[in-house]
Design a protein around this nucleic acid. Structure first.
Lengths: 98, 98
DNA sequence: CTTTTATATCGTAAGATGCCGATATTGAAA
DNA sequence: TTTCAATATCGGCATCTTACGATATAAAAG
């Protein structure tokens, strides 16, 4: 599995992005209000609401996490669902000898 | 053990700093030319030479790693020796659930 | 004391990042 | 086909980061 180690480290350098990743780890805790099944992921709007930031800024953070491969996105109708990419996350931790 | 998780992530966001940490993992491989015992650490000048960067820039990178607690420094005469702080590094990896 | 060597710090410029509001896009609904 | 809702993208600032050369500091050497 090839990863962009540098993109991942840079993505993780932001507290907000680490927070988003943490929230996505327990969607049933942090996003229980979502109408659609959480198995799809969490839609951008709900993540927005948790961050005290503008919609455009949160969208950019999600794009950064996505480009790093730490999350995946899945569009359904007008919603875009995001979830952790556990395979990439685990692979990153495993190779992370430091 | 309290760590500045954010400072560590930010320190690791630079490829050059990750490279320095990697070199320091095997000083006998990368800094065998050092006259003084490697058990002291590796002196700044030798690290300088490995990086294709100015002395002042490398000094700043070392300061960043130091502030994050990823390395320690030890001055002896006119030299400043740096070595990895394995305890902090390991503690960081351990808490790194992501 | 003066000079040399090793390293840190300062001032600065270029580029990257983070944030915003405004606008574009996409799909659903009326 | 107009409108609405969800999200992405754009343009613009402000701040942070990285790099440099120049200078300061500290210790050793002469």
């Amino acid at each position: 599995m090839q990863m962009d180690i540098d993109a991942i480290h840079k993505a993780l350098a932001s507290p907000m992005r680490r927070q988003i990743l943490a929230w996505l780890k327990q969607p049933e805790v942090y996003f229980s209000e979502q109408q659609h099944p959480l198995s799809l992921g969490v839609c951008a709007g709900l993540i927005d609401r948790r961050c005290a930031l503008s919609q455009s800024t949160v969208s950019a953070h999600l794009a950064t996490l996505l480009k790093a491969g730490l999350i995946t996105s899945h569009r359904v109708g007008q919603w875009n669902y995001f979830k952790r990419d556990e395979a990439t996350i685990q692979a990153f931790i495993d190779q992370m000898t430091l």
